[in-house]
Design a protein around this nucleic acid. Structure first.
Lengths: 231, 231
DNA sequence: TTAATAGTGTCTCTAAGACACTATGAA
DNA sequence: TTCATAGTGTCTTAGAGACACTATTAA
């Protein structure tokens, strides 16, 4: 907040938007939901779902992000966290703009991008390989992937990429796919048990042509758990 | 970025600002630089230094934060990182506003708040006790302190609260003051040695009425180091 | 009985914490 | 010589990783 509020009022104020990186695990890869732009600038190019803040409708920034998630992708209650602000004079050819970028995690099984507003212009695209996107959205996407990878190392975030019921081998596979390396089963299960954020669903198992796996769910009141790091 | 760019143009766009939490360690406590507001709203109340983005002057958000740091507090090269965005319809009585909040760490010894623009309206205040500030600045300040505390647990951030030359006992005291607990000297020094981000200044020691301490400085090319945390 | 994956137990090794020890300068 | 703090060495213990083992189902 400026102490003197109108000193610079003669200059155009930057436009500000909210953009959301929606990540999921599909076909064994991390994918992001992108939309094809229908208007200039960057008409026809792929971009992150986003939009302006609606002051009469959005209570706060988080609410604006949730509205965008709902309107553009038909997603109601994903994991959502603020990623980072991006702003400069070059990202939009129309002038200085800024955006509050969010990132959301959803289970591929629980959603259908076709339910969004303009269905044909929505697609899942691989999130980890470099690609050209409108504005600075490639950079925002890369930042989101980096943030996820970093947090996966020491949090329970990956459960949000699974449906409500899952097995421990499922969960381990999610960690392994995001981090791109194998993990020891025994050590993994010890840490999950210690973190104490999932519980077996009594009597439910996943049948298979081998030993069936116990089905788990996230405990009630669960919040993301951070594992120990020491200074 | 909205696909349709002018659909909501009839509604007032939120004003957006950049605010900076400047933290230092003075008198054994974590303190924040605050400014007394000279105009409505919240005239006469204390607030974080901040201001509007100057599109012709600021290359990007970080540059805007650095300009505010320079103009309001006379600080040139502190540690600076983006904290979080805050925005809603209630924080400013004039309507929906949003801010990109930053936090900066500076060594108390290397700066004098009197060098800022309006000196008499600038003061260091304890950052950890609750206080009433203009807008939602108390919440922003609390968020910055929480972020610092959390990062201190597993990074080398605290060096930025010391002058360029310091001793290892100095550094340990910074960690202890922020975290509010004693640390084991031997373990602390082992970790600092392992992180390998400081080096002794050859031949320089801090004289005292006891064994003098070796003086250290941060290594060239140093970037914040994260200690291990495992999933 | 076999194949395949779920799930557990055990051993080793590293690293953190506790704590005792030595080092060094001023008074 | 004493005091105070700097700086190092050693022991114990907890936890991570490696890896071998057992369990359970369908075919």
């Amino acid at each position: 907040m400026a102490v003197k509020s109108n000193k610079t009022a003669e200059f155009p104020r930057p436009q500000v938007t909210v953009d959301v990186v929606i990540l999921t695990l599909r076909e064994g890869a991390l994918q992001a939901l992108l939309m094809k732009r229908g208007a200039a600038p960057f008409e026809g190019q792929w971009a992150l779902p986003g939009g302006y803040i609606h002051p009469q409708e959005d209570q706060n920034l988080d609410a604006a992000a949730r509205r965008i998630l709902r309107d553009k992708a038909g997603i109601e209650t994903p994991y959502l966290e603020q990623l980072q602000g991006f702003g400069d004079g070059k990202r939009d050819p129309r002038g200085w703009t800024a955006t509050f970028a969010y990132f959301a995690l959803v289970a591929a099984e629980t959603l259908d991008p076709q339910h969004g507003a303009n269905a044909e212009a929505v697609a899942w695209r691989n999130a980890t390989e470099k690609q050209k996107l409108a504005f600075d959205h490639a950079e925002i996407l890369a930042t989101a992937v980096a943030r996820l990878r970093s947090k996966v190392e020491y949090t329970t975030l990956p459960v949000h990429l699974l449906p409500p019921k899952f097995t421990l081998p499922d969960l381990q596979r999610v960690y392994e796919q995001i981090l791109g390396r194998k993990m020891d089963k025994s050590a993994f299960r010890k840490r999950m048990a210690e973190a104490d954020f999932v519980e077996p669903v009594p009597g439910e198992q996943r049948p298979a042509s081998n030993r069936p796996a116990q089905i788990y769910r996230v405990k009630r009141g669960f919040k993301t758990i951070f594992f120990d790091r020491t200074i």
